[in-house]
Amino acid sequence: MPSETPQAEVGPTGCPHRSGPHSAKGSLEKGSPEDKEAKEPLWIRPDAPSRCTWQLGRPASESPHHHTAPAKSPKILPDILKKIGDTPMVRINKIGKKFGLKCELLAKCEFFNAGGSVKDRISLRMIEDAERDGTLKPGDTIIEPTSGNTGIGLALAAAVRGYRCIIVMPEKMSSEKVDVLRALGAEIVRTPTNARFDSPESHVGVAWRLKNEIPNSHILDQYRNASNPLAHYDTTADEILQQCDGKLDMLVASVGTGGTITGIARKLKEKCPGCRIIGVDPEGSILAEPEELNQTEQTTYEVEGIGYDFIPTVLDRTVVDKWFKSNDEEAFTFARMLIAQEGLLCGGSAGSTVAVAVKAAQELQEGQRCVVILPDSVRNYMTKFLSDRWMLQKGFLKEEDLTEKKPWWWHLRVQELGLSAPLTVLPTITCGHTIEILREKGFDQAPVVDEAGVILGMVTLGNMLSSLLAGKVQPSDQVGKVIYKQFKQIRLTDTLGRLSHILEMDHFALVV
């Protein structure tokens, strides 16, 4: 994948999101292997301009796509893939009243899908469409860049269908997702969380590099694949309309690839034109409109599966009536509230959605109805927002919020430890010299600072030695090549209790 991002070429006709291997024109390309080798690009942008032909009021008969309808489940399912879809609609009884809503608040519980998330729908649909058009064949390999849930859905379907599955996901995604993927037989590649989507090191860039190296491999490409919004247009939206008897006044959905909100909203605009569509985008993402909503100094966020630093091709923002931004604290607070007060075992993005819903639905009156999409299960986040310690460490809970008995030293300040200034190293000294210094002084790690004293990161003896043994660096290389740029900081005025929580999850903390 090139470091400079080429513009994806656009073909003359058809839909841009065809499933299957992508040609340089962004659509299915038939021909000899030699032709494909000559024409197939190194990668295709996940934010390529959409060429979708959908228009409100256009006859369904003019759609270029294969459409399906929700099917009634048999008493005995032939395999677990038949437990994807037909998820329950559940009334939220307490939270709406707590925040003064007059309307009825309903939750579409997508964590009841077989793999635990709304992404099971698009995973199965992308595979079925690729099999139907002859792209996927027995023994082929599926590769997908994902925040985890699409990966789980694909790995689940691949396990049943017999495909090899490789999932490329950023490091910030939970260990629970990784464990589930491994249990399903998927191979996992992790990428830096802070890598831009168009960087060769991003999950998108690495996935395309693997595709170019592995024979008979395919990126189904949830960011561009029409099967993504079509899955929701054909099934999720129809289920909502049936469950609500066609009567709903507002739908609120958090947005990642945009397939969920695009597919549902398009069908609702056709069948229930008075329904307002509300999009939820986390602070630090750029999906919301108008652009002024996205202006923030924050560039990272903890909530998973929603928000991006690019506009995915499948996201149709014209069908969203209003956007709201959400933050991590309210997302996790509301997710825990949904679990504790409503018994809905949902993930953090569901918290984002409901946090926005109780604001947006203030305009609705008694007798009206708001539906929220709860995308995934708490299963993926047992060591994250479900953990009091994690919430404390991230600053989303305060010590006084917890009532468990603490040891005698818990409320003492870090400054009472009488710490001395640490050994520091410059980023320009060599790895070999740094190892000598650390061994001589008896230290395992040291902060790396520039000549102005600005902290650049941390270097550890173990990481340097393993990097040297693996051949990633040489003793003569500058130590700046092996620094940890993500590390926890703590102030002298913070409590030892807070430091204790940090050290339970990290090997060190830097006192500043």
Rank of each mutant, 00 (worst) to 15 (best):
H66M: 10
N216F: 07
L136D: 02
P200M: 11
C109V: 15
P16I: 15
S23W: 13
P64T: 02
S19C: 02
N93T: 15
K177D: 02
G11A: 13
P16Y: 15
I261M: 09
E131I: 08
P59T: 15
S175E: 10
V118A: 12
I142T: 04
E4F: 02
E104V: 15
Q55W: 02
E37Y: 12
H65R: 02
A231R: 07
K30F: 02
K97P: 07
I261C: 09
G14R: 08
I219F: 05
R58A: 15
C15V: 08
S73V: 11
A265Y: 02
P6M: 15
P70S: 14
G274I: 15
L220C: 06
L251E: 15
K30C: 02
L268G: 02
D221M: 05
Q7R: 02
N212I: 06
A114V: 08
L101E: 02
M250R: 05
S202R: 02
H17L: 13
H17I: 15
S175W: 08
N113C: 08
G11I: 02
I264D: 08
K75A: 12
G139T: 10
N225Q: 10
A107S: 07
P145G: 10
R45D: 04
T146M: 04
M126G: 07
R45V: 07
E213R: 10
K267G: 08
D234S: 08
A114T: 15
G205V: 07
C272Y: 10
L105P: 06
T141V: 11
S27R: 07
V160M: 08
K75M: 13
E34F: 12
D234H: 02
K36P: 10
A157L: 02
S175R: 05
H67M: 05
K25R: 09
G20S: 07
L28W: 02
I143C: 02
I167T: 10
G11M: 02
M250E: 02
P2I: 12
G259F: 04
G256F: 02
I219Q: 02
F197M: 08
S63N: 14
L156S: 06
E104S: 10
E62W: 05
P33I: 15
L181D: 02
G100Q: 15
I152T: 08
T191F: 02
S23L: 02
S27P: 07
I264N: 11
K271S: 13
D221Y: 14
L124V: 02
E144S: 06
R266A: 07
V10R: 09
I152F: 06
S147N: 02
T5L: 02
R266G: 06
A69P: 15
W208F: 07
R132C: 13
K172T: 04
P16K: 11
S73E: 02
P170G: 07
A69Y: 14
A237N: 06
P215F: 12
V90E: 02
V255P: 05
T13S: 02
A114Q: 11
E213T: 14
N194M: 10
T141G: 05
R45F: 05
Q7Y: 15
A265S: 12
L230R: 06
H67S: 11
S61H: 02
G11R: 09
R58G: 06
G258L: 02
G259V: 06
K83P: 08
L210H: 04
P6R: 02
P21D: 12
L81C: 15
V10P: 08
H65I: 05
S61V: 06
G20Y: 02
A237R: 04
